[in-house]
């Protein structure tokens, strides 16, 4: 699966809007790839990464076209779309949510496909915090007196 990590980071960067560097910086990339692959299977994951490669190649550096291709090839695909949406949620909130019922009925039901937090730090490393410019509640304290100042969060 190690060979899939670069592709997974490229896909994740396109899906989340954060750079691969910033995603790796969360320390969660391996755990998220393992979680998603363990649940949907390596076949689905490889097809998803291939579709992401294709979208990138056919966009040729045109950001608007890249987004359109991602929507066409992945987000509107019955098999790949729900998995991609789950990967986005995982990056943003650190949890895996059970896939939608139609997907489970059509593509198999993994016993691991239930709502769960991926790792002890996946919540605090969730992208939702830098996205909204805040520190995770109850974690990453900013220091005494800093509540009187605007949060300083690098958006990445």
């Amino acid at each position: 699966m190690a060979d899939m990590l670069d592709g997974f980071l490229a896909l994740s960067a396109a899906l989340t809007g954060f750079t691969g560097h910033r995603l790796r910086g969360t320390g969660q990339a391996e755990a998220y790839l393992a979680t998603a692959t363990g649940i949907v299977g390596e076949g689905v994951m490889r097809d998803l990464l291939l579709a992401a490669d294709e979208a990138r190649a056919s966009a040729g550096g045109d950001a608007a076209k890249h987004e359109a291709e991602l929507r066409r090839l992945i987000m509107s695909d019955d098999r790949l779309g729900p998995v991609a949406r789950n990967i986005i949620r995982m990056w943003y909130v650190g949890s895996w949510y059970q896939l939608p019922k139609p997907w489970r009925e059509a593509h198999g039901q993994s016993p691991r496909d239930h709502d769960h937090v991926v790792s002890p730090i996946s919540y605090t490393e969730g992208l939702l915090w830098p996205a909204i410019g805040a520190n995770p509640a109850g974690a990453k304290p900013a220091g005494y007196g800093m509540w009187a100042m605007p949060p300083r969060i690098a958006p990445g």
Binding site: P141, G143, G145, M146, M149
Partner: peptide, 21 residues
């Protein structure tokens, strides 16, 4: 000084982001 010390917590976040690469 208070603000400077607070800034150290942000440096820590940048530290981890770099060391995971």
């Amino acid at each position: 000084f208070v603000e400077a010390v607070g800034g150290m917590f942000q440096l820590k976040e940048l530290y981890y982001q770099i060391m995971r690469q």
